[in-house]
């Protein structure tokens, strides 16, 4: 604890108080005070190795000192709403101990022409996030359906 406070003072001395506050805010420490999960992750991160960062900014940590099976975790990029579907498929395997290849390694094996870009699950986030197939009643295209197209009187002659 003492070393933590010492290093904090060190940082303030080097960078100035404003920069340190900004850094803490960007790192999501502000939210940590309200959200225990985030704070727990932050504390957990101390001493862990950062294995990789994915395209969305999620950070993947590993700490071999931890109990086996709890030694890999993710710190989500979004601090306000985070859920497991934000992990892209290439990191999923690493994170769930399916494989020891990291997401960055797996990305190199990904065929170019396959698969859509990963999207997180937007269930419950509103109609605009819900996928409606082409024939679905709530598809915007379907809602513009008209039975017939009336003739528009345009003065021609």
């Amino acid at each position: 604890m003492a070393s933590l406070i010492k290093s904090a003072f060190q940082a303030i001395k080097e960078k100035g108080i404003r920069n340190v506050v900004n850094e803490l805010k960007e790192g999501g420490y502000g939210k940590c005070l309200l959200d225990g999960n985030l704070l727990q992750t932050k504390i957990h991160n101390i001493g862990a190795t950062l294995v990789g960062v994915d395209q969305f900014g999620n950070k993947y940590y590993e700490n071999m000192q931890c109990q086996y099976g709890r030694h890999r975790w993710v710190e989500y990029a979004k601090k306000d709403r985070y859920n497991a579907s934000q992990v892209p498929p290439e990191w999923h395997g690493w994170l769930h101990h399916i494989t020891d290849h990291t997401g960055d390694e797996l990305l190199m094996l990904k065929p170019k022409r396959y698969s859509l870009e990963h999207r997180e699950n937007f269930s419950g986030e509103g109609d605009e996030f819900i996928y409606h197939s082409k024939g679905h009643t709530l598809n915007p295209g379907q809602r513009d359906w008209t039975r017939y197209q009336p003739w528009q009187p345009t003065p021609k002659s």
């Binding site: 039975r147 017939y148 197209q149």
Partner: peptide, 17 residues
């Protein structure tokens, strides 16, 4: 049958519309 349908009675006004 679905396009260019006349759906309402229309009168050409004095302005040609």
């Amino acid at each position: 049958l679905k396009r260019q349908r006349l759906s309402d009675p229309m009168i050409r006004g004095s302005d040609g519309q």
